[in-house]
Amino acid sequence: MARLDPLPEIAEQAAYYGDGFLHNNIFWPMEHTKQMVAFYRQRFEHYGHGRADQAIVGLGGQVFVRKDSQKAWDEFRPYFDNAPVYGHGPSMEDFTRETPLTVGSPQQVIDRYAAFREDVGDYQRQLFLVDHAGLPLKTVLEQIDILAEDIVPVLRAEADKHRPTDVPSDPPSHADLVAKARAAGEATDLHVVGEDRWTGRRAEDDADETADAVTR
């Protein structure tokens, strides 16, 4: 297997428990994203939670959108060039080519993000970062409106149209996983409401122990 980045443990942990895996790929090229998602899917299947293509996956993303593509580039460039994180580094052209950052029209965002399924398979969640690069609140709120009105409904419809019927559209809830574990005889000791289904502990217990350790 090719080398993974320093956080394959997160994908491994999510796969072990049968949880969904959100790859926060906003600074990574698609080659890396494909590698991490493929690793998670492989381990999800290894632990018996279903086929690899049935694993619950989410991706990160960044956009700056205006109705006119050139206006989007002209407006966003000063913010990008001086952004606290990526300012004074790679050019906006390089960054939009090599990472999920997409600057342009709603259709350009739709085309690019709808195509991600070709690289990582059908996935269930798409996170958009819009409050970035020092954008003023008014602009951020405008971005949210464009996403809600022109982009997200189309992406959701495209995902539903292409997703196979035996690939879930929603991740299981904690209650779903507990019920599944109980049905399989893996959680016979879960008699306390709120108790963790794997360790038999509750978050409150850990908090109490931590407090005791601090006061000792």
Rank of each mutant, 00 (worst) to 15 (best):
P136T: 10
R51I: 06
D176E: 11
Q70W: 05
Y16T: 04
L127K: 02
H46K: 14
E45I: 04
N82V: 02
Q62D: 06
V57S: 07
G61S: 15
P90E: 14
G60N: 09
D111N: 11
Y123T: 13
A55W: 05
A55H: 06
S169M: 15
Y113I: 10
N82M: 04
Y16V: 00
G18T: 03
K67R: 11
E186C: 10
D19N: 13
E118N: 13
I144S: 01
I146C: 01
Q107S: 13
E12V: 03
D94P: 00
R156C: 13
Q54E: 15
Y16C: 01
S69M: 01
R66A: 05
V193I: 08
L59A: 12
K71V: 08
Y123M: 12
R201I: 01
D189S: 15
L127P: 00
T215H: 06
A157E: 14
Q70P: 00
A213C: 09
P164T: 09
T33P: 02
Q107E: 13
H23I: 13
F76M: 08
M30C: 01
A72Q: 04
F64L: 05
R117I: 13
G194T: 11
D170E: 15
A213V: 14
G89D: 09
D145E: 14
H88A: 12
H46E: 15
L129A: 11
M36Y: 06
F27M: 12
D94M: 11
S173M: 09
A83G: 06
F76L: 07
K71M: 10
P84T: 08
Q70N: 12
Q124I: 14
A38P: 00
D160T: 09
S105F: 04
A184F: 03
K34N: 04
A175I: 11
W198A: 06
G104T: 07
I144H: 02
E93P: 02
E98T: 15
T188N: 15
V214H: 11
E45L: 05
F116T: 07
D122A: 15
T96P: 00
L4F: 10
L59E: 06
A148W: 02
E31H: 10
H46P: 01
Q70G: 02
I56G: 00
H162Y: 09
D205Y: 09
D208M: 13
P100Y: 01
D208T: 14
D208V: 14
S69R: 13
P8Y: 08
D5N: 15
I151C: 03
E31Q: 12
D145Y: 04
R51Q: 14
L101M: 14
D122C: 10
S173Y: 09
D19H: 12
D122I: 11
G60W: 05
P78S: 05
Y16F: 15
A115P: 01
F76R: 03
Q13M: 10
F64S: 03
W198E: 08
Y113H: 10
D53F: 10
F27N: 07
I110H: 02
G121P: 06
V63Q: 04
R117M: 07
D196L: 03
D150P: 01
E31Y: 06
E12N: 07
I144N: 02
D74L: 07
T210L: 15
D5W: 07
N82R: 07
A181D: 14
E93Y: 10
Y86T: 09
Y86W: 13
G18H: 04
V167C: 06
I144F: 03
F76H: 08
T139C: 08
A114N: 05
F116W: 12
K138N: 07
T102Q: 08
